[in-house]
Structures are given as C-alpha cells and as structure tokens.
C-alpha cells in the first residue's frame, strides 16, 4: 500500500511505515514483558491474591463440599475478577512515573495500538496465569468434573475483556495519586456482563447444557471492546498526561 501524501522523509530510514508500527508493537510488548520478568513479584501477587480469596470462602461460609460445588463457578469467577482488578492499577503507573508514556504519546506510531500492546502484556501476565491456575482452586472447591476445560477457556477469554476494559479505568486514574479505590468504582460496573457470561458458561457446563452460547457471547464482548476500547484508552492517557 503506497501513501503518496506521506513526506519522503518517512521513507528515509528505508522502512515502510506499516512495518515500523509492527516493530514498535513488538518492541513495546518485549520491553514490558522483560520489565515484568526482571521483577516477577508483581505478577505473582495477583495469583497469590486469587488463591487467598478462594481460601477465605470455605472458612467464611462452610467447608461442606456439596455447598461449595454449587457456588464454586461464581466464587472462582468473582475472585479471578478481583485479582485482575487489583493488578490494573499498575498497568500504566510505572511508565507514567518514569516518562515512558510520554514517549509513547510523542512517538509516530498510533497511541491506541501501542496501548493495546500494553493491554496484551497485562493479559499475558495476569489473565492467562489466573485462568491456568483456576482448575487447582476448582479442585479445592470440589468443582464438579467436566467443567474444568470450560472454566479455563471462559476465564482466558473473559479476562482478556477485563484487561481491555480495565485499561480505560487505569488510564483515566493513572495521574491521580490515590486512584486505586476510584479505579475499582469506575471499572467494576463495566465488568458485570463478563462476569454473567463467564460464570454462566461454567454453570452451563456443570448442568450439562451447551456452553457455546456463553463462550460466543464472551468472544463477542471481547471483539466489541477490542474495537472501541483502544480509542478510549488513548484518549484517557492523553488526558492523564496533559492534566
């Protein structure tokens, strides 16, 4: 695809603009992943939180396996949602503090795409591990067999949407000194549909009915949020940085 209106300077480095966007995306993701690898504690914290919250419920409600089995899908989903929520605050905060976000804003590449790279890293390091860890906690809650695959799939799919939508809230509150509580106030109402269809998928799997509709709706939510949210994230980052 040629772009005649682009000035000759943009070709001066011998690279197509499209290629430079892909390069920048990969570079951003690689940098963020490396930063997390060097400091793995942050990613482990939300996993530990997930396990801890799940531990609290049998203690608080009842250790009765039958009762736990009936509420396990909802418990696992709510706890995973809260764990993902807790990690949101750190999504942009370090980059905001050390000026990386400003560089992203100034860069020639479109900010919505660059923000999406950060969201992808957040999901890879939070949502995906949570989904993979959920079966272990499911065993502890005596989740009925046959629903484990659906649990992992629904959490993996749903947590991606949680990361995308949550990034809007994280971007809006990144400039505020005490944004944490406000962030959960902004984001939790928007999480309701994901929770309904995510927990619904696991419940449907336990009941033996088709889970395709729930998973399809989770996928639809992800698709819609992937289309709209990057623009909102970019606009929010600009507001936070200029304020």
């Amino acid at each position: 695809m040629s772009r005649p209106e682009a000035s000759p300077k943009s070709y001066a480095r011998g690279r197509e603009p499209e290629a430079s966007v892909a390069l920048a995306l990969l570079a951003t993701m690689r940098r963020d992943l490396l930063a997390l690898l060097r400091r793995p504690g942050a990613a482990f914290n939300s996993l530990a939180f997930f396990a801890l919250v799940i531990t609290l419920f049998p203690i608080g409600i009842s250790p009765d396996p039958e009762l736990l089995a009936t509420i396990a899908p909802g418990l696992l989903w709510v706890a995973a949602l809260l764990a993902a929520l807790l990690s949101l605050d750190g999504m942009f905060r370090d980059d905001f503090a050390d000026g990386t976000l400003e560089q992203l804003l100034l860069a020639a590449q479109p900010l919505p795409l660059m923000a999406l790279a950060k969201v992808a890293v957040h999901w890879l390091t939070t949502g995906l591990p949570l989904a993979l860890m959920a079966p272990v906690l499911g065993v502890m809650l005596s989740l009925p067999p046959g629903s484990y695959a659906v649990l992992v799939l629904s959490l993996a799919l749903g947590s991606a949407t949680l990361s995308v939508i949550g990034a809007i809230g994280a971007a809006l509150t990144v400039g505020l000194s005490r944004g944490g509580v406000l962030l959960s106030l902004l984001v939790l109402p928007l999480y309701v549909p994901v929770l309904i269809f995510g927990a619904g998928a696991v419940q449907a799997a336990i009941a033996g009915t088709s889970v395709a509709a729930h998973l399809a709706l989770l996928g639809a939510l992800l698709a819609v949020s992937l289309v709209f949210a990057p623009w909102a994230i970019a606009a929010s980052l600009r507001i936070s940085l200029n304020g």
Partner: peptide, 29 residues
C-alpha cells in the same frame, strides 16, 4: 478527583461515553 478542571471534565466525558455504550450491554446481559 482531578485537580485541573479541564482534565476532570474530559475524563468524565470519556467515562460517560464508555458507560453509555455499556448500558445496553449490561441491560441485556
């Protein structure tokens, strides 16, 4: 929550628009 009025206004505008897209989704779900 914002100290600068303009930032607060724009942040609230973004959140309202995100919310209004979500209201029908929340309603139907």
């Amino acid at each position: 929550a914002f100290d600068g009025r303009d930032s607060g206004s724009r942040a609230a505008s973004v959140l309202t628009m995100v919310g209004v897209i979500n209201i029908p989704i929340i309603k139907y779900s």
